[in-house]
Design a protein around this nucleic acid. Structure first.
Length: 352
RNA sequence: UGGGAUGUGGCCAAGUGGUAAGGCACCAGACUUUGACUCUGGCAUUCGCAGGUUCGAACCCUGCCAUCCCAG
């Protein structure tokens, strides 16, 4: 009996090719586009319309699924809340955890389908030895998105397909051409999807109705160097936008919500050797009794760095072999062993 | 009011007769399914103002203005 796969289609090249590949492999495929938020951009060619056209060109039924409520609650509100608390959240990670592989997967299963597929560049492999589903890096290292998927549970992984995992971006574009897809050359998406103009601070202020208050930029010795435009506009390691002229570049080295100050200093002050990770999800193993060696990523576009990881419950302590720059609370830490994701979590705090 | 010092782009700052370094900031691109970082490019027809000397001045001369310091 052929499996019925719900394929998330955004209207972009990746998800369209993913759907096409599944069709070619003989799956029964239904396309689905998530309605995540009300777009105030009425330029006719919406992503949903693009996705519907793409599905139609592949001869697939297509569903538009209203996910505005969960997206608002789990992604947008949480994003704003995290920033107001002084963290620097990664909404894509949270969206994957709660909306795409939460809400949408549940929806697929509820509709009687067998699996959910997306255009993510990552691989899932069932390991006979351990009886666990493994999440692995994509074949195309430059496009690998396994970092964004560390939160997936065994249950979620067992019902998920990543048809693009073994391909490179060039392969995908070439396939799109060969399938005659109109979006073959569509530019890769970027920025936060619900903040298309990139001004996430203004978005947060509109969403919450609270204006982030100006405060002082202070140096390590307490000297006030200037006024900042609101805590949410800064993140650890940030250089641009400080407006402080000095004889050398200055970076944000800390944020203090309690007195509304932003600490700035030299780049050397940004390095940390240890960090605590919360909400840890282990994928490759059920539990870790002993400290393990792993390569740890602290941001999406970052080379994993060797470290020793000690897990206790859903908390992990990570000690890097070499100090890491601007390890930022709210971002995700993902532990790799070779190409396999051991697990991951959210960075809670760091120590020198 | 005397004495001294200084005035170069938003900030700092090289340059002391040969036709405006550099850093910071800022702007624009690139990179990127997060925020950042990074990279590339842009950014003073002009050196407080006005005269003068010179083939030629930010650099020399004169005057003025401004700021700072020290006097009382």
């Amino acid at each position: 009996m052929t499996e019925h796969v719900l394929t998330a289609m955004s209207g972009g090249v990746d998800s369209t090719v993913a759907a096409a590949l599944l069709v070619r492999e003989g799956y029964r495929v239904t396309g689905a586009t998530l309605d995540l938020f009300d777009k105030n951009a009425p330029h006719g060619q919406t992503d949903a319309a693009l996705a519907a056209r793409a599905a139609q060109s592949l001869g697939l039924p297509h569903l538009l699924i209203d996910a505005r409520a969960p997206f608002r609650q789990f992604v947008m509100d949480a994003f704003a809340r995290a920033y107001l608390a002084g963290d620097t959240p990664n909404p894509c990670v949270v969206c994957n955890a709660t909306v795409k592989f939460g809400f949408l997967l549940d929806e697929a299963l509820r509709l009687g389908m067998d699996k959910l597929a997306t255009g993510h560049y990552a691989q899932i492999e069932y390991d006979e030895m351990s009886g666990r589903y493994l999440l692995k890096k994509a074949a195309d290292d430059a496009k690998d998105q396994s970092y964004m998927l560390w939160s997936l549970s065994q249950q979620q992984l067992s019902h998920t397909l990543f048809p693009l995992g073994t391909l490179t971006k060039n392969d995908v574009r070439a396939l799109a051409e060969s399938f005659g897809l109109e979006n073959a050359q569509k530019k890769d998406s970027q920025d936060i999807c619900f903040v298309p103009d990139g001004d996430y601070a203004a978005f947060i202020e509109t969403l919450t109705g609270k204006v982030s208050q100006p405060g002082d930029f202070v140096a390590a010795d307490g000297t006030v160097l200037g006024r900042h435009k609101g805590l949410i506009r800064y993140t650890l390691g940030q250089r641009r936008g400080l407006g402080i002229s000095a004889d050398r570049p200055l970076y944000v080295t800390g944020k203090n919500p309690s007195d509304n100050t932003v600490r700035v200093g030299d780049e050397q002050e940004l390095y940390a050797t240890q960090m605590t990770v919360r909400d840890v999800n282990l994928i490759a193993v059920e539990t870790l009794e002993q400290p393990v060696r792993a390569d740890v990523k602290t941001r999406y576009s970052h080379t994993a760095s060797p470290a020793t990881v000690t897990v206790s419950g859903d908390i992990a302590h990570v000690e890097f072999d070499t100090p890491q720059r601007a390890v930022t609370s709210g971002q995700s830490a993902v532990f790799y062993q070779a190409d396999t994701v051991l697990g991951g979590g959210f960075i809670a705090d760091t120590q020198q």
